[in-house]
Amino acid sequence: MSGSAVSLPSVWAPFDDTDADVMLRSSDGIDFWVYKVVLAKASSVFRDMFTFPDTATKRQVVELTEKANTLEHLLCLCYLVQRLRFASLKAIALVLEAAKKYAMVSVTITLGDALLRFKSTEPLRVYALAYTHALTDVARASAARSREDP
């Protein structure tokens, strides 16, 4: 097998609407065409960003530090386009960090529910993530679960 990398799409579906008014570009070069109004409703950071006058005649491009997979999860939670199942706590942690960075409170709360799925297998890691992100109920539940382990 050769060492060639898997080619990523340049635009990530379902965030490929050509009439979207802003493009978010991931750190690995994937574009997400989204609507300012949706982002502004989900994030006070984006809401504040979009209050500045836009003098560009083309679609505004915002380059972000997150990778495409993290942005996809974050945007799916904002757009409610699909129910997400996270394969790992690491994936949840990355999206939690992005949600915190962009002040997406409702996304953070939703991710708390995703954390609970891992409380029986990794209660201490779940506790640490929940505590760090002020998800008090999740932290309590995972702390209680960790006391049950022998």
Rank of each mutant, 00 (worst) to 15 (best):
P53Q: 11
V37K: 12
C78V: 05
D17A: 11
T65I: 09
S10W: 04
V34R: 10
L64N: 05
L84H: 09
Q82I: 04
N69Y: 01
L84E: 13
T51L: 14
T57D: 10
T57S: 12
L75H: 02
M23C: 15
L39H: 10
D31G: 10
V62E: 12
S27G: 07
H73E: 02
E72K: 15
V22I: 09
D21G: 14
E63C: 12
V45R: 04
K36D: 00
D54G: 06
D54Q: 15
T57W: 00
V45I: 14
A20N: 09
T65F: 03
V34T: 11
D31Q: 13
F32R: 03
L74E: 01
F32M: 08
P14L: 08
S27D: 07
D28I: 08
V38S: 08
F50E: 10
F46M: 04
D19M: 09
D54W: 02
F15D: 04
T51D: 13
S27I: 04
C78A: 12
K58E: 14
E72N: 13
K67W: 00
E63T: 12
K58I: 03
P9F: 05
D48I: 00
L80A: 11
V61W: 08
T55H: 13
A42M: 14
T70G: 02
A56H: 01
D21C: 12
A13K: 13
R85L: 10
R85H: 15
K41V: 09
R83W: 02
W12L: 12
D48M: 03
F46S: 06
M23R: 11
D54C: 14
D31T: 02
D16G: 05
C76G: 00
C78P: 08
D21Q: 14
R25G: 04
L8K: 15
T51I: 01
R83P: 05
K36P: 05
L75S: 01
V37Q: 06
A40Q: 11
D19C: 06
K41T: 06
T55D: 13
L71I: 03
V45G: 02
M23F: 00
V61Y: 05
D48G: 08
D28N: 15
V37N: 06
